[in-house]
């Protein structure tokens, strides 16, 4: 059975939980079994927010993952707390806008993406979560970019549809920044 996990962490307000939900929705769209498990501190903003997405072509089993094989880390505190938990052979996508010069542990492939700057260039710094998700998909294609784009549209309520362009552009900017080719 093919089983993939992605652990996302950042500050409350950075959209970590939403990015994970969009990934989970894309997995469901792709015909996979999926679980999305959040853990966060009680603060509205600035506390820690994390979620774990497990995707499989059969029952996902544990929604809890001790040593993740893919990590999306959006600030310096998350890098400090969670990069040491990465499994041997894991891939870690790190937001260099808030965690410049992160450690590069043996056995972990570290990709840095200036997500805040790329999101701002795409139209809104608030889309940094999607830049990070796009970058992850370029280096660990757990689901197709097109399914994630569709899931982004699913996630937008009707009165926010006008921001679809910014969000899709942020996703693609991250994908390109990590070496992905959006034309394929």
């Amino acid at each position: 059975m093919n089983r993939q996990d992605v652990f996302l962490a950042g500050l409350g307000g950075q959209g970590v939980l939403l990015a994970g939900q969009i990934l989970a929705q894309a997995a469901l769209r792709s015909g996979l079994e999926v679980s999305w498990f959040p853990a966060y501190s009680p603060e509205v903003r600035g506390g820690e927010a994390t979620c774990t997405v497990v995707m499989a072509d059969g029952p996902v089993g544990s929604p809890i993952v001790g040593r993740p094989r893919a990590l999306v880390l959006m600030d310096a505190g998350s890098v400090e707390r969670h990069l040491p938990r990465a499994a041997e052979g894991a891939i870690a996508v790190i937001n260099s806008s808030l965690a410049p010069d992160p450690p590069r542990p043996d056995g972990v492939r570290v990709i840095t993406v200036p997500a805040n700057e790329l999101a701002q260039a795409a139209g809104s710094e608030r889309s940094a979560n999607l830049v990070m998700l796009g970058a992850l998909l370029a280096v660990r294609p757990v689901v197709a970019l097109s399914e994630v784009e569709a899931a982004v549209l699913d996630a937008l309520p009707a009165h926010r549809r006008s921001s679809a362009g910014v969000n899709i552009e942020a996703l693609r900017a991250g994908y390109r920044a990590a070496g992905g080719d959006v034309s394929v």
Partner: peptide, 9 residues
């Protein structure tokens, strides 16, 4: 709190 807050299809 795991089952309450996690999402699945």
């Amino acid at each position: 709190a795991v089952l309450a807050q996690m999402m699945e299809p």
